[in-house]
Design a protein around this nucleic acid. Structure first.
Lengths: 233, 233
DNA sequence: CGGCCGTTTGAGCTCTGTCAAACTCTGTGG
DNA sequence: CCACAGAGTTTGACAGAGCTCAAACGGCCG
């Protein structure tokens, strides 16, 4: 019974909370559940790598996954962080291309793999599902375009403040306003598109300005409206 | 018969060459043609403006349209140029949002407006059409993500070389290798995400290095592999 | 304990943005 | 036909944001 031990429980691999699957009929949802396969992923493990062939997309039911591209000199550019309820790898899959990003676990995760055939079956048979998928892609596209404008026009200081606020929106704070996602300075730099040292210097400036408090990788928000001003939104 | 004079001819407003409409049945295509409405747009005219409500999307049958966002201090960030065969404004329309870009004509254009209801009808009734649309969005998303990586990691010099190569891919060259799209230095700067003066200086460096030749706004490619090296692709 | 990874701080330098001024080209109106 | 205005282009000078390199420090794990 070893395999049972190594598989997530039904609750942990439940996809009924995913907004994207809401339009499915009972039959379709059963088919999905039958054809998916779920696994644990340890921190640091790679789900798929840039340039590899994808056999399906993934639904994240637990944990946090970093999606990034490898640019000049192997420097990472973080595209987004996926959180429970998000789907990943669907873009390259739909375009019939090799993966153009790498996905790496940064918080112990549970992912359900859904084969390509299941995806195309659902697209072909459920127009509501297609439309949902289309809307997810459009939302990401808007965010990407917004980010291009920011990165092209804003200073590193403004971008860092904005990134902190975006993280706050996507990953809740605890009771003391502390961000519940733990990133290295380098990862922050790779989101902002700057050098690690610049992030470090700016973070301590933010701390001096009483906008945030730092405790190792924990970031506590003290003055959100102040940060918003710095971000120049 | 005044309206006839001001309307594009049937040939000029023909949508049968659009890849996205290939999956339509004859009935669907007829419906599309019946419900579309086509017009001329002079250079400099605005098709829709950031923040406005969209009533449909547009098919570009002739000319060139610049799609841009307005950032800090009203500085434009150019997202892309649309050319004949492209559709525009579909993203905000599908997301049910106000337009988040402005579309302005830079080369005398003919555009066909397709109402929102026609779009949703086609999505609901033709899964192949939905899939095509999804793939267009995914392609744009990939390009946006690639561009984020570039703009975050590359120098202005590298980005300008890359932008020139992208323009070459999208807008053919004439017999003498001259780019068939005429942009101001400021527009180039707003693509690259830099200052107008920087573009001017770098262009003359490229000219000195015998990579390109300049004649007003005409840009002639002399050494494409050299440019590729500069672009660091 | 030693090594490794991540963090921090300092110094120097370069790329690139800003400001200012001159110059070209085009179209308009007297 | 010329003068003028205005937009776009070009060049120079300068400052500073942010990158690189180097070194030191802390924490963690085998």
């Amino acid at each position: 019974m070893r395999s049972v031990v190594n598989r997530p429980t039904p609750e942990e691999s439940d996809l009924s909370g995913f907004k994207i699957f809401k339009p499915l009929s009972e039959d379709e949802f059963n088919k999905l559940n039958y054809e998916k396969s779920c696994s644990f992923y340890k921190k640091g493990s790679v789900i798929y790598r840039e340039g590899s062939r994808l056999t399906g997309f993934y639904c994240l039911t637990k944990g946090i996954v970093k999606i990034y591209k490898t640019g000049i000199d192997g420097k990472e550019q973080i595209i987004r962080f996926a959180k429970p309820g998000d789907i990943i790898a669907y873009r390259s899959l739909l375009s019939n291309e090799l993966a153009c990003t790498t996905a790496k676990v940064i918080d112990e995760a549970i992912l359900c793999h859904v084969p390509y055939q299941t995806l195309t079956y659902l697209i072909d048979n459920n127009t509501k599902f297609s439309l949902h998928l289309l809307q997810i892609a459009c939302k990401e596209l808007k965010e990407a375009n917004d980010y291009i404008t920011d990165i092209a026009q804003k200073t590193v200081r403004e971008r860092l403040a904005e990134v902190l606020l975006i993280l706050k929106e996507n990953f809740d704070l605890d009771a003391s306003n502390t961000l519940q996602i733990s990133l290295t300075r380098e990862e922050l730099a790779n989101m902002v598109g700057t050098a690690t040292e610049s992030v470090i210097r700016l973070l301590s400036e933010f701390k001096q300005d009483r906008l945030i408090e730092l405790n190792g990788r924990k970031i506590k928000f003290l003055d959100i409206s102040g940060l918003t001003k710095v971000a120049n939104i």
